[in-house]
């Protein structure tokens, strides 16, 4: 593994930790970003952790590339032994199948298993949020069980509903907004993943985990209503802690 530090134009620096996606690289990036944020370096505008790298956007009037690069090197040393991150696992309710999960039967048929098995495999897992991107609040989740990985549609749908939960190849994810998508849509969550009225607009952030649990249609509607009135509190637990 080789760490690479390069400029991205005149106002950003990219630190690449590895060239393949895995959880240990992610944890390294996560440590680095926590330490960076704690330092509150004057001139650093924001940073974006992604699969194998982190990008720092900065204002060259306040800090020049060479100065920031030096700070990055010293942070790299810190990143190895830092405090535990205590990730949070968000429990996301999903109404699987039906009109809002039209590809559930297709995914089941593709693997020659029952729809119930697809649901239980999909919901029985803690997925790491590697990064947020594409559209506001969209999580790139890692850890889909290969048993249910399914190729994308040949012809993407022009629009899928906000909240749609899908499988695209080896990935799974939740669409926060109505967008075009070529993923297999197996269900829908009643939760709002991105809300500009919240101090923290995105429910999820890189470094945390997501787990899905199936709900029936009635419950889906009930949660949706409460969620829209901001009266639904998303269930969470600390990673590693057993839930009952």
């Amino acid at each position: 593994m080789s760490i690479e530090i390069v400029p991205l134009g005149d106002s950003a620096i990219s630190i690449s930790f590895d060239n393949e996606i895995n959880e240990s690289t992610h944890h390294q990036i996560n440590h680095f970003s926590q330490n960076l944020r704690r330092l509150k370096i004057d001139g650093v505008i924001e940073c974006v952790p992604t699969y194998t790298s982190i990008t720092i956007f900065y204002d060259p009037i306040k800090i020049r590339y060479s100065q920031l690069e030096k700070m990055v090197y010293s942070l790299m040393e810190l990143a190895v032994n830092s405090i535990p991150l205590n990730p949070i696992v968000y429990r996301i309710p999903v109404y699987y199948g039906g009109k809002t999960g039209p590809d559930l039967p297709i995914v089941a048929a593709y693997h020659n298993i029952s729809e119930q098995e697809v649901i239980s495999i999909h919901s029985n897992k803690e997925y790491l949020v590697h990064m947020i991107g594409f559209v506001p609040g969209f999580p790139y989740l890692g850890g889909l069980n290969k048993i249910i990985s399914t190729p994308r549609l040949e012809k993407p749908r022009a629009k899928i509903a906000a909240g749609s939960v899908g499988i695209g190849g080896d990935q799974t994810g939740i669409y926060p907004a109505e967008v075009p998508s070529g993923w297999r849509i197996i269900g829908i969550t009643p939760l709002t993943l991105f809300d500009i009225e919240n101090v923290k607009p995105s429910l999820l952030s890189a470094g945390n985990y997501v787990t899905f649990f199936p709900v029936g249609y009635e419950e889906f509607l009930a949660i949706k209503e409460r969620s829209e009135l901001k009266k639904y509190e998303v269930m969470t637990y600390k990673k590693g802690e057993q839930i009952t």
Partner: peptide, 8 residues
């Protein structure tokens, strides 16, 4: 600025 990490 400040919300790129959330896809904004």
């Amino acid at each position: 600025y400040g919300f790129r990490e959330f896809g904004v």
